[in-house]
């Protein structure tokens, strides 16, 4: 099939970018979306042009590196599918496809479709962990965890940190991302001990990193390739209220 593409090209962080038109010819429906871009890039290189820069790594939907907004939807039209797992059979001959980077104040564009998502790492650094030393821990079966709690923790922990939730949010909010980590750890007995402090410092970090506020549009969940649930945002809110009531007053 043949496609017309409009791709965001931006040479460097502080240079003005623009949408540039390309055509992708002879695309097979078995290709993944990124393989389609590979073909376009090979064409650009043979013409002596600079290929389109885009982030990608595992190409099997788990590392969370790929990050494109396709026709206005982060990760494109298929539900629960990362860009790398999106295949061209979901498009038809003659389609026009708009490809843009994830856009948010907290995600500065580095080049073309590549953005800096370091802000998400910095949120985790503010408490997205259990403060355990290596070694000196009890036997794994000494703390029993109900199957329900373990499953809830796992549901929350499926987040791949791709940033699609932020990109889809009209407010550029990182609530779903932060909530997934807060909920994962708060569901486990090991994680409850630091829960008060964790939810405060992680939510503070969201603000410091200039993510917006959640207004419950739920766009985040709609584009999340792992389907992380909005009930985790409610869980974060509950944890926050709990920490205000029972935690110490410092923040």
């Amino acid at each position: 099939m043949d496609l017309s593409l409009f791709v965001w090209r931006q040479q460097a962080p502080d240079v003005q970018g623009e949408m540039v038109a390309y055509s992708a010819k002879g695309i097979s429906e078995d290709m993944s979306f990124l393989e389609m871009l590979d073909v376009v890039n090979e064409g650009l290189i043979s013409n002596g042009e600079v290929p389109i820069a885009f982030d990608h790594d595992c190409r099997e939907g788990i590392c969370g590196t790929c990050s494109q907004v396709i026709n206005g939807v982060p990760h494109g039209p298929m539900e629960r599918t990362t860009v790398c797992q999106l295949h061209m059979r979901n498009f038809k001959d003659g389609d026009t496809i708009f490809i843009e980077p994830l856009r948010a104040k907290a995600f500065p564009i580095l080049k073309d479709l590549i953005v800096d998502r370091g802000a998400l790492d910095r949120i985790i650094q503010e408490g997205g962990y259990i403060s355990v030393h290596t070694g000196g821990v009890p036997d794994a079966n000494s703390v029993l965890i109900s199957r329900k709690d373990a499953e809830t923790a796992m549901d929350a922990s499926e987040c791949i940190g791709c940033g699609a939730c932020v990109a889809a949010c009209p407010n550029g909010s990182a609530m779903l991302f932060t909530a997934s980590k807060v909920s994962h750890l708060a569901a486990l007995p090991q994680g409850k001990i630091e829960a008060d402090q964790r939810v405060r410092s992680m939510t503070n970090a969201m603000k410091k990193e200039q993510f917006g506020n959640c207004s419950n549009h739920y766009e985040c969940n709609a584009v999340c390739p792992k389907g992380v649930k909005i009930s985790f945002i409610a869980k974060l809110n509950r944890e926050f209220i709990k920490s205000m009531i029972s935690g110490d007053s410092s923040d």
Partner: peptide, 11 residues
């Protein structure tokens, strides 16, 4: 919220 998402998408 407006400040957190200053660059609009084309689509």
């Amino acid at each position: 919220n407006l400040l957190s998402n200053p660059h609009g998408y084309v689509i």
